[in-house]
Design a protein around this nucleic acid. Sequence first.
RNA 1: GCGCAGGUGGCAGAGUGGUCAAUUGCACCUGACUGUAAAUCAGGCGCCCUACGGGCUACGGGGGUUCAAAUCCCUCCCUGCGCA
Length: 405
Amino acid sequence: MAFSFTIEKKMRGLGRAGVVHTPHGDILTPAFVPVATKATVKALTPEQVRELGAQVVLANTYHLYLQPGDALVARAGGFGKFMGWSGPTITDSGGFQAFSLGAAFGTGISKLLKKSDELILPEAQADIEERENEAEKKAARLAKIDRDGVMFRSHIDGSAHYFTPEKSIDIQHNLGADIIFAFDECTSPTEPIHYQREALDRTHAWARRSLTRHQERKSEQALFGIVQGGRHEELRKISAAAIGEMDFAGFGIGGSFAKEDMSQAVRWVNEILPPERPRHLLGIGEPADIFGAVENGCDLFDCVAPTRNARTGTLYTSTGKLNILNSQFMQDFSPVDAQCDCFTCRTYTRAYLAHLFRAKEMLAATLASIHNLRFIIKLTEDIRSSILHDTFERYKESFFKVYIH
RNA sequence: GCGCAGGUGGCAGAGUGGUCAAUUGCACCUGACUGUAAAUCAGGCGCCCUACGGGCUACGGGGGUUCAAAUCCCUCCCUGCGCA
């Protein structure tokens, strides 16, 4: 069966609940997409991922190209088959690594900026000394961008690899996901607007080239174009219009945001994108981020936060996040979250998880990942259900009443 | 009993006259994490204070030498190894 999207129910405004149909099954939306960068959701078996209610997983082009190589993954029957996941699959294009291995490399800069981080905003970096520091950082980058593509230096062995839009699409055809993404440039929120503008032109040109290559090869896979534009309303709208009129099966919304007005940026974009095609908000989010994204018209979200937080001891609960390594949890024999229906919460206490983390036992990562993923998947299930029953606003209100962000 | 080696912050272990409140690792405390360079990273970690500065107490106990001692000398206590 070919790719398609049906909308089941529209909210007031931009939000909706729907179904993405793929050759490997349906995805009920809104849906959270666990990240399986290297063809594995870290610390979990595919069976566990499925039991959490996950419908689809997302892997990464850059990582699988480097290791074990996309040709090998193709021989294995695609990354889904390779990793033992029979449901729908997505690959990201490698565009994010233009940022994470480029401007962000070694700096600790996140794609999400808080307004309180104004010191690193471009408009604050006038003086020469800071510019020089910037230049020094650039020297250490593992990704260098030019008009045609991105030169990556492997984070594994230092070898050089040049990605163009065509190359990314070719690799993604080999990896064989149901949904693939155009090659883009995810910019740093610290870049000034003139650079954001220049990068956006590049991303749009790369989107056209990605689409052309994809059409030439007559792949059955669904190609999504990616909207960029950073924190700027003007650029976001230009990008939504440009990408929206291209013949993509769906859209990704990528790039950097100011955390406080991310949902507004999403709205600017989704007011322009054609509504009948699905929208994937790339790399978002935390539990609290999902609401704003959904009510502003996003259907899919992938994010490493639930699994990475889990591995580093931060657990989601209905009253907010907690760090299981805090001393107070050593003797806390209650479950992580009494409201949660996951295996971890049904079976273990906070004290046991605190012990596993302190003892650095592998099971800590597994049990915490089970919990955090289930927490956010359950959240999106409940959100979907609330849309279908016209109770979204009430559900959102009850969530934030007790969730301390 | 004799000989040798040694006793340093919660633990291990540097330092062997001033630059030592004392390297480092672990443990401990706290924070961060949003298309995974990530089972990671950052900060703190003697006590007190009107804390990018100041005061006090500290390197087994006690006593000395010195302007100055964790570092040198004497003595006591304790530990390990060897010999009786």
